[in-house]
Design a protein around this nucleic acid. Structure first.
Lengths: 132, 132
DNA sequence: CTTGACCTTCCAGTGACTGGAAGCCCTATC
DNA sequence: GATAGGGCTTCCAGTCACTGGAAGGTCAAG
């Protein structure tokens, strides 16, 4: 499949897809005419990248996560260590997103006046319990 | 409070804090000696920025979200519209994080062999249900 | 066989930082 | 009171992750 189709299927701009190839995140085949030819697996990787990047994971983190799937030579303990570390981070992100959600939802449902409400939204928004 | 203390309290590098000021995300006072002087409110804003950026919101999105809190002149309907739109996005992010979590957790608990497992993790990871 | 959409590479620009130089401020010790 | 150290200042340059644009090749339709 051509890059345009891959772009549609993943929501990533073609430019970004080429960039991801340039930095070694995937290696699509080339057709005889020189066009990139994306497999279903390539699309999976790209879709994953689209999601993980949007969730605040760096490109290097994405590379690690992708390697969990793709690298057949990797030791099982190694896989587990990386995956476990990411799990902790994901749980933190989940909690932060939930806090943000509750703050916004509060704002939508309670603050209907013509002016800024007095409720200390910032407390929730910046995390009542000390972070890190 | 000086920038070093603000940096400690928020987990943001001093460089980043100065950058956020430069692009108008906060305006700390200045002490007589020219040093930036951060209030508790400034620290709240910074802590929020630290979180929201880590969750994949762009600086412009963060600016909008901060304005929900800070702008007393904003119309209520406007606030609600922005907050509601962000809620939708947050819910999407929450679902994606949950999917990522389930994939990683599956990897940790099921794939204990010496080699890559056969389970098609990519299906989960790239989202079984078609996105956008 | 031309038009237009899609592809290629390459190079430059942007957003969001990040590092480093040069110099001022402040405390602390000699 | 001089000086050493750490923290602060500005400014300018560099990096990461894209993003836009130019110049040109490919392909299906008319």
């Amino acid at each position: 499949m051509n890059i345009g189709t891959a772009s549609e299927k993943t929501g990533l701009p073609a430019k970004t897809i080429r960039y991801y190839e340039e930095i070694g995140l995937l290696s699509p085949e080339r057709a005889d005419n020189g066009y990139r030819d994306y497999s279903a697996n390539d699309v999976h990787r790209l879709r994953f990248l689209q999601r993980a990047r949007g969730l605040g994971f760096s490109v290097e983190e994405c590379r690690q996560l992708l390697s969990l799937y793709g690298d057949k030579n990797r030791e099982s303990a190694d896989v587990k260590a990386i995956a476990s570390a990411k799990l902790v981070e994901i749980d933190r992100k989940l909690a932060e997103l939930a806090a943000l959600r509750s703050m916004l939802s509060h704002l939508v449902s309670h603050c209907h006046g013509d002016d800024r409400p007095d409720c200390p939204i910032m407390d929730e928004l910046s995390g009542r319990s000390g972070m890190q």
